[in-house]
Amino acid sequence: MFSVPTFQKLHLVIVQEIRNKTGLTISADSDASIRADGTAAVVEGLYQHQNYIQRQLFIQTADEPYLYIHAEELGLPRLGGTRASGTIQATSNIDLTVLAGTKVTDGKGHYWSVVADTQLKANVATVLSVNADQVGASWNFSGSTLLFVSPIAGLAGIATVISISGGSDQEELEDWRARLLERKQLGKDRDRNTDLISKLKEITGIKHVYIYPKRRGLGSLDAAITAVGSPPTLPTQALIKTAQDFLDAEEAFWGDLRIYAPTEQFLNVSAEVSGSSSDLSSVETTIRDYFAELAPAEEYQSAVLTARIMALQYVTDVKLTPSSNVVPIVNWMYTNWIRLGSLAVSQA
């Protein structure tokens, strides 16, 4: 790697050249030394500019504005965010119509709007489709109820949430950089699993892709996808359809290819922690992080989770339930995905 000379080194080289040509004795406060400082500063700036240019030439080191240039060359734009959507149940004590645009809220600054005019019968729970008012993962809702904003007469003010998900933020800069670098390293598309994964990750909202060859028999190739979230969540049917349509439209090598969602297999966990001054919230976070990392078809390993908890400060022992490994069900019909169910952490 080329070694860039320091300012002091540049100054000494210039001063030495002046001495060689004039025979002057140059002190630090002389006119020649001051001029040498100015020249050295300009040369140092030119070196810094060359370093800046060199940094932008490579995906690994390019600044954000120049990544857009690399992305245009590779045909891999940065993924934008998506709006969360889902369904809620509403009830009323009279027949009425809930108009499109009617808003529900969690009371914390997040709003969702009803998609279409919907007729409600008296005392009959009716399903309403809603979309988030803004783009972002913060509008994915995991609670059980939302509040109608200024409900009309007869409409219950509380709505029961069936499911609201699918929202995602703009792609993180380093995630985008990793995709660009992977695409450049892969080169021309071929029939590799990595090519399929790279293609699917071009779709906004997809977090992970897991490839299962011959799942439905010879010649078949299936891909289970998860949706962006913290932790990653199951994809919506709309996202699955988008991914399937995207690949069907591709002039690729894949023939009998099916996109599907894994099946959640919930695991209830309890942990009794020994150790004075041990932080139970850190134990809970460690357990949640472990389950967030599990991929579809990956088994729960109690020894791994126990080791992570034992590595926490002040923890001397832990009694974990389940205490044995749990292998998810995987067959031609189901690809189970172990997820955290209820969690209880207590001091032994």
Results as ranks from 00 to 15, higher is better:
residue 167 G to P: 00
residue 154 G to Y: 09
residue 211 I to M: 08
residue 235 P to D: 14
residue 94 I to W: 01
residue 135 V to M: 07
residue 208 H to Q: 12
residue 200 L to F: 07
residue 276 S to M: 03
residue 323 S to R: 07
residue 246 F to S: 14
residue 271 A to R: 01
residue 258 R to Q: 14
residue 115 V to L: 09
residue 25 T to I: 12
residue 149 V to L: 13
residue 254 W to G: 08
residue 221 L to F: 08
residue 46 L to Q: 10
residue 80 G to S: 14
residue 104 V to N: 01
residue 6 T to R: 14
residue 261 A to F: 02
residue 307 A to Q: 12
residue 52 Y to N: 13
residue 55 R to W: 00
residue 267 L to C: 05
residue 255 G to R: 14
residue 116 A to M: 05
residue 244 Q to L: 09
residue 22 T to C: 07
residue 176 W to D: 00
residue 145 T to L: 01
residue 338 I to H: 00
residue 247 L to A: 09
residue 189 D to I: 11
residue 70 H to S: 10
residue 347 Q to S: 15
residue 257 L to D: 05
residue 7 F to S: 08
residue 118 T to W: 03
residue 330 V to H: 08
residue 299 E to F: 04
residue 75 G to A: 14
residue 295 A to R: 13
residue 77 P to F: 13
residue 68 Y to A: 15
residue 173 L to D: 08
residue 81 G to N: 12
residue 4 V to A: 12
residue 127 V to L: 11
residue 4 V to P: 02
residue 173 L to G: 02
residue 169 D to K: 02
residue 63 D to W: 02
residue 320 L to R: 04
residue 274 S to P: 00
residue 246 F to E: 11
residue 279 D to A: 12
residue 62 A to S: 12
residue 231 P to R: 02
residue 136 G to N: 07
residue 205 G to V: 06
residue 275 G to C: 06
residue 232 P to K: 00
residue 189 D to S: 15
residue 21 K to V: 14
residue 261 A to M: 03
residue 202 E to P: 00
residue 337 W to E: 04
residue 341 G to H: 05
residue 261 A to P: 09
residue 189 D to Y: 06
residue 288 R to W: 01
residue 3 S to P: 02
residue 164 I to E: 01
residue 102 T to L: 00
residue 14 I to D: 04
residue 88 I to L: 11
residue 117 D to T: 07
residue 88 I to F: 05
residue 187 G to W: 03
residue 190 R to G: 15
residue 135 V to A: 09
residue 112 W to T: 01
residue 103 K to T: 11
residue 145 T to K: 04
residue 43 V to A: 15
residue 85 S to G: 09
residue 144 S to I: 11
residue 29 D to V: 13
residue 20 N to Q: 13
residue 255 G to D: 13
residue 107 G to W: 03
residue 323 S to Q: 10
residue 320 L to D: 02
residue 156 A to N: 15
residue 305 L to Q: 03
residue 278 S to Q: 08
residue 293 E to S: 15
residue 73 E to C: 07
residue 252 A to N: 14
residue 107 G to F: 03
residue 312 L to I: 11
residue 45 G to C: 06
residue 223 A to M: 04
residue 31 D to S: 08
residue 148 F to Y: 13
residue 44 E to V: 02
residue 342 S to A: 11
residue 160 T to I: 08
residue 294 L to R: 03
residue 113 S to F: 06
residue 145 T to I: 09
residue 95 D to L: 04
residue 168 S to P: 00
residue 49 H to R: 14
residue 275 G to M: 06
residue 301 Q to N: 12
residue 223 A to F: 02
residue 303 A to N: 11
residue 129 S to M: 06
residue 279 D to C: 05
residue 4 V to R: 15
residue 274 S to I: 01
residue 312 L to N: 06
residue 213 P to V: 11
residue 277 S to W: 01
residue 66 Y to N: 10
residue 290 Y to A: 04
residue 235 P to Y: 06
residue 55 R to Q: 14
residue 69 I to E: 15
residue 187 G to V: 10
residue 292 A to F: 05
residue 253 F to W: 09
residue 294 L to A: 05
residue 207 K to I: 01
residue 84 A to F: 01
residue 296 P to G: 07
residue 322 P to D: 12
residue 296 P to C: 04
